[in-house]
Design a protein around this nucleic acid. Structure first.
Length: 218
DNA sequence: GTTCTAGAAC
DNA sequence: GTTCTAGAAC
């Protein structure tokens, strides 16, 4: 009999990688404390669960997986995630350069296969301060036509410098060996609502949404 | 990250 | 009175 003691994440991690343990599970006593903050079911761990779910995977290869954002902020909004557990850009180093470039290439591949690619612009990038754990590259069309886009925070997270271009991130890792984020990044989310295309300032989200229609081509 | 909702803004 | 935002969520 084998006894594992640890927190939920540690125990589950061991169970996942231990074939012997799986086969002997009936004889194994598993104790763990599940603090709410580290529980795998906590909202901040949602991507780790989602990326493993075949029902939401739209592409996968040996290094990364793509899912559709559960609450898309535009007509097309994908997340590219590495299989390796990487909590955020904070833990990215030069060792990850190849992975970042691969994720970018996968993002471009998603755009290539998009039926509306000729009529829409896309951006690829990372949030300066992500809410969800597990590194994820956003690939988002620039129509921002979505009922899930509801708040100033949503808007500014994709249309201010809070959104870090994937290529800029890669270049920063190449030159500095890490990603540094502007100390005042969180304040960018409070900026007035401004159209990303013509820079007109709007006072409310509904007004912004109405304004965005002016830029639609169809 | 979202939901819910109190009260600010109009 | 209605629309809209922004902070709590144990």
């Amino acid at each position: 009999m084998k006894i594992i003691i640890g927190n939920a994440c540690e125990v589950l991690e061991q169970m996942k990688h231990c074939v012997f343990l799986k086969s002997a599970l009936q004889d194994t006593l598993v104790f763990f404390f599940m603090s709410h903050s580290e529980h795998l079911g906590h909202w901040s761990q949602g991507l780790k669960s989602a990326m493993q779910d075949p029902k939401v995977q739209v592409y996968k290869d040996e290094k990364a997986v793509v899912i559709k954002d559960k609450y898309p902020k535009a007509r097309y909004h994908w997340l590219i995630l590495p299989w390796d557990s990487i909590s955020s850009l904070k833990s990215v180093t030069r060792e990850h350069l190849g992975l970042l470039e691969h994720m970018h290439a996968v993002g471009q591949k998603m755009i290539q296969q998009c039926p509306a690619k000729e009529s829409l612009e896309f951006r690829l990038g990372y949030h300066a301060i992500p809410s969800m754990s597990q590194l994820h590259l956003h690939v988002i069309s620039q129509d921002f036509d979505s009922p899930a886009l509801k708040t100033k925070k949503h808007w500014n997270s994709f249309t201010t410098e809070y959104f870090l271009n994937s290529e800029d991130v890669i270049e920063m890792v190449r030159s500095k060996g890490k990603v540094t984020v502007n100390d005042h990044a969180s304040e960018l989310l409070k900026l007035p609502l401004r159209c990303h295309l013509c820079k007109q300032q709007l006072s409310t989200i509904p007004q912004l949404k109405e304004h965005l229609k002016k830029h639609w081509t169809k």
